[in-house]
Each structure stands twice: as structure tokens, then as C-alpha cells.
Amino acid sequence: MSLMERMRPRPGLRVLVTAGAGGIGSAIARGFLEAGAKVLVCDVDEAALDAFASAYPDASTVRADVSLDADVASLVDAATERLGGLDVLVNNAGIAGPTGAIDEISVEDIRRTLDVDLFGQFLVLRRAAPLLRASPAGAVINISSVAGRLGYALRTPYAASKWGIVGLTESLAKEMGPDGVRVNAILPGIVRGARIEGVIRERAEAAGVSYEEMEARYLANTSLRRMVEPEDVASMALFLCSPAGANVSGQAISVCGNVETI
């Protein structure tokens, strides 16, 4: 196998991508489809799922809320039935959560953020673990954030969940490594798309400045002074599931243009 061939995932991988109908998840799902994988995508947004299914008829889709164990059980059953097992789990589902001081945000918003962003990953992992152990090439990619390595004022529920994902990743890499399952986290930075636009808008309102000023502040804190594209994150996911990434596990890898502070 040539070095270039080692950089590509082997065709036929069975891949589950949570929240895969839009944004980063969609880019990752598309990348695996292009690599010849069998892909199952879940999402809570039925319209987005329908649009993804129309655009990529080779993919399987199912509606699921990863914060609900019953939904997750049905999702993993679908992976068994439609894919015949599971080689790769991309734990991508997450929400932005509230923006505000710790004593101003609601308990409901805190719980919802942690339920989706962190607890949801636990629920999917505990159901998918037996399938991944049975795979000859089991791999997990947990999507964290640059907020999982830096403090993030006014965004504490989100940051706490993303730091938790890094701890989950490093711990699970040790737990499942003897079974041949690799576990890594990707920490995206300021990824172009609707989610970061909403975050910047809320942060601008909280600071009493314009959207343009807040966006400029975000980019000024990034060494490369530019946003990350969803495809940049997808490329890292594909690498981690290729033969070239066979000995990469337990790592929290930033794809962020070197965000210095947030």
C-alpha cells in the first residue's frame, strides 16, 4: 500500500454520524460516502434529514435525539440492521447552549446543553460499544471544541460539556484500546456556518457591540485569522479512520487555526 493509499479510509467502513444532516456532521458524512463507506446519519431535524437523503441517496437516515436513551437504542439497532454492524462512530451531535453569566442562565438551558453535548455521547457510546469491539477496525471520533481546552466566559455550560468530552475520550481510549478500538476527539475552532453566526450574535448582544465587531474579535484571537471550514474537520475525521491513523488514539486534536483565547 502506497503512502497516498494509506491516507484514505478503506472502502466499506460502516459509519454512524450523529447530527449528520447539517454543518460539520454533514461534511463528515459526505466525506465517508465519497470514500466508499456505508453511512447512517441521524438528526433531530426531519427537514434536514429529508434534504440530506435526497442529496445523498446512498446514505441511510433516521431521526434520533441522542439525549433520549430510547432513541439511541433504536438508532444503534438501525446501525445493526442497515449497516450490518459498526466500524466508526462519529459522536457529533451538540447544541450551542445559552450565552450569559452563570447566575443569569436558566437551569433548564444548562441541563439541556449537558444532556445533548455530553450525556448524549455517553448514551451513544454505551449502546455502540459492543458493535465497535466486534469490528476489526473500531474507531470513535468524539466532536469536542476548542472550548474543550480554553475557558469560555459567558458560555460555561457549553465549555463544561466540551471539556468533559476530552476526559471521556482519553478515558475511553484506555478502556477500549485493548479491544483494538481507537478513540479520539476533534476540537474544531470557529467553524463557518449558522451555529457560529448565532453564537457571535448573542455574544455581541451581551457585550453591547455590533456583530461585525464581535466577529473581528473572534478572528483576532485566531493565529491564522480565518474561520475553519466544515470540510477541514471532515478531513481530519477521514485521516483518523484511515490506515495512516491506525496508531493514533487517546488524542484531542484541534482543527482551529490555532485559537489563542476565546
Rank of each mutant, 00 (worst) to 15 (best):
A153I: 11
A185K: 01
L40A: 09
L123N: 14
A147I: 02
S145Y: 07
A19Y: 05
P57E: 08
A37R: 06
V39S: 10
I196H: 06
E205N: 07
D77R: 15
S26L: 13
G36I: 10
R155L: 04
R225C: 03
A96E: 14
G245V: 08
G208L: 09
R225E: 14
R112K: 14
I102Y: 05
A21V: 09
A37D: 03
V39R: 08
A51R: 15
S144I: 06
N258D: 10
D69R: 13
L168R: 13
N184D: 05
V140M: 00
V191C: 10
A128W: 00
A27L: 06
A29V: 03
Y158G: 08
S144D: 04
L240Y: 01
G193T: 12
I196E: 12
R30M: 07
L114V: 15
A19D: 13
T18A: 05
L187Q: 13
V228A: 14
G148A: 11
P9W: 10
A27C: 06
E231F: 00
R182T: 01
L40G: 08
F119N: 11
E108W: 02
P157G: 13
A139S: 15
C256T: 13
I110P: 00
G12F: 04
D232K: 07
T18Y: 06
N258Y: 04
S242K: 07
I165H: 02
P9F: 08
G23M: 09
W163G: 02
G20E: 13
R127L: 05
D50L: 08
V233H: 11
A47R: 13
I110E: 01
A128T: 01
A206K: 14
E212K: 13
P230T: 09
L168C: 09
V199W: 02
G94T: 13
A206R: 14
R6Y: 04
V90L: 02
T222L: 02
L83R: 12
G177E: 09
R8S: 10
D50Q: 14
V72H: 09
